[in-house]
Simulated assay, not measured.
Amino acid sequence: MTKAHSNGIGRPPIGRWFLIQGVVLVIVGLAFLLKSPIACYSAFLGGFIFIVPHGYFAFKAFRYSGARAAKKIMSSFYQGEAGKLILCAILFTMAFKWIQPLDVAALFLTFAVMLVTNLVAPFLANGRTQRN
């Protein structure tokens, strides 16, 4: 039995999720280097715009645990989600305003790849711990 099974619900393996996302970002970013250096840094920027707000969300959402902290957990989730959306908007605005030249397709494609990776990472990270 894993710790999560023996003591109730445990915290998700966020570190593994971010490691998987980081590896995917490096692979995608370096793949865009084949197109151009501008596409490469634009891709890394798209990944950065994804990872930073999601890191904020993870910090806010998973800092409390246990049934006694249910109200704090819900409040933290809402705060984390609101902060994530605001950070995404600010970072996209900054990128479009201050980063020139910018390969918009590479930026958005990498952001989209990171969205898909975010959906898949929990299954990849948990796959090893759930097998007996």
Score class of each variant (00 low, 15 high):
Ser36Ala: 11
Thr2Ile: 03
Met1Lys: 13
Leu87Asn: 03
Glu81Ile: 06
Leu91Lys: 00
Leu30Met: 14
Ser65Phe: 14
Ala95Met: 04
Arg11Leu: 15
His5Gln: 15
Gly83Met: 03
Gly127Asp: 04
Gly15Arg: 12
Leu91Ser: 00
Thr129Asn: 05
Gly55Asn: 01
Leu119Trp: 12
His54Gly: 05
Ala39Trp: 07
Ala125Thr: 00
Gly80Thr: 07
Phe111Pro: 04
Ile99Trp: 06
Ser75Met: 12
Asp103Pro: 03
Pro53Trp: 02
Met94Ala: 15
Tyr56Ile: 14
Leu30Thr: 06
Glu81Phe: 04
Gln100Arg: 14
Thr93Lys: 00
Phe18Pro: 08
Ala121Ile: 02
Leu115Gln: 04
Val113Leu: 05
Gly83Phe: 06
Val104Tyr: 08
Tyr41His: 13
Ile27Glu: 04
Val24Ser: 02
Ala89Ser: 12
Val26Thr: 12
Ala95Asn: 08
His54Glu: 10
Pro101Trp: 10
Asn118Glu: 06
Lys71Arg: 14
Thr93Cys: 00
Arg131Glu: 07
Leu45Asp: 02
Leu34Ile: 06
Leu34Trp: 02
Pro12Ile: 15
Leu109His: 09
Met114Lys: 09
Ile99Lys: 04
Thr2Asn: 15
Leu102His: 11
Ala70Phe: 14
Ile49Arg: 05
Leu124Ser: 05
Arg63Leu: 07
Ala61Tyr: 01
Lys84Asp: 01
Pro122Cys: 07
Arg11Asn: 15
Gly66Gln: 13
Glu81Cys: 03
Phe59Gln: 10
Ile38Gln: 13
Gly127Asn: 02
Leu109Cys: 14
Ala70Thr: 12
Ser42Leu: 05
Ala4Met: 03
Leu30Val: 09
Tyr64Thr: 03
Leu19Ala: 15
Phe111Trp: 14
Tyr78Asp: 00
Ala89Ile: 09
Ala61Leu: 02
Ala121Cys: 04
Arg131His: 05
Ala125Phe: 00
Leu33Ile: 10
Leu25Phe: 03
Phe111Glu: 05
Pro122Glu: 08
Ala69Pro: 02
Arg68Glu: 15
Trp98Gly: 00
Pro101Ser: 11
Leu45Gln: 06
Ser36Arg: 11
Tyr78Cys: 01
Gly47Asn: 00
Ala106Ser: 13
Ile20Ser: 04
Ser75Val: 02
Pro53Glu: 06
Lys84Tyr: 00
Thr129His: 08
Thr2Leu: 06
Ile51Cys: 08
Cys40Ala: 15
Gly55Lys: 03
Ile27Ala: 14
Ala4Leu: 00
Ala105Cys: 05
Leu115Arg: 01
Val52Thr: 09
Leu85Thr: 03
Leu109Val: 15
Arg68Val: 10
Asn7Met: 13
Phe108Trp: 14
Pro122Thr: 03
Leu102Pro: 07
Arg63Asp: 06
Lys60Leu: 10
Phe59Asn: 06
Phe62Gly: 12
Leu102Gln: 09
Leu102Asn: 07
Tyr56Leu: 15
Gly46Asn: 09
Lys84Ala: 04
Val28Ser: 09
Leu107Gln: 11
Leu25Gly: 01
